[in-house]
Design a binder for these strands. Sequence first.
DNA 1: CGCTTGACACCGT
DNA 2: AACGGTGCCAAGC
Length: 104
Amino acid sequence: MQEPTDFQKRVYLLLKKIPKGRITTYKIIGDMLGIKAYQAVGLACKMNPFAPEVPCHRVVKSDGSLGGYSASGGIKRKIALLADEYVYINKWKIIDFKKKLFKF
DNA sequence: CGCTTGACACCGT
DNA sequence: AACGGTGCCAAGC
């Protein structure tokens, strides 16, 4: 595995700032990093060599849906992780999404 | 997640 | 440096 790019490190650093029970979106992260390619944020998560240290599962799409999850367990695992933090999912949407949203 | 289009950083070559 | 393929994507239909 290669060293994370500077971009990736910025993404991880940002993700680690997310408090438990809170979530954020790819759009917000992208805006935070000053980029418009939110896909790159997803890429960073996908290539994320760290496990729970970088809570990728706390990142969702801008409409409150989960998006995807590349780590072991797939999307199902993501739902379980969120439920463990009192963030519940209903039909691929986060319940009280706006209230749990963390805007840094 | 239904599917298609758009936009852009990432990575291997 | 440039190109092609790709993406826990966003927005629209």
